[in-house]
Amino acid sequence: MIVYCLCFVLFLTGLYGVLTRRNLVKIAISLSLMECSLFLFLALIGYTEGGIAPIVDPADPVKNYVDPLPQALVLTAIVIGLATTAMLMAVIIRLYRKYGTFDIREIKELRG
């Protein structure tokens, strides 16, 4: 149980970073941290006691495998996370070019 709780702690650490950091890049890093905690959690869900890697052995197809589905989900989620992070970094670079700063307090054109 403790590992699952540690995942949640990592998630909250990322959330704390998103809420308190003032630097755009640090916000992006905190978001990646939250994402990683979720991937860890998803991978842990599939674990079974004493399970082995889910590679089918033609000689003995019925063994105690770990659940392969969460691993597939994690891979898909990693691909999505890659796209999101790349998009976020592109916007951050553009913002830096327009405003000349990474400080979120300086970037406040939109109000109301």
Partner: peptide, 20 residues
Amino acid sequence: EVASSIVTIFLALVIFKEEM
């Protein structure tokens, strides 16, 4: 697809930086 898209993302970010 993945190899070329990751190279594209990397190049796009490098090009942004060079332009800047």
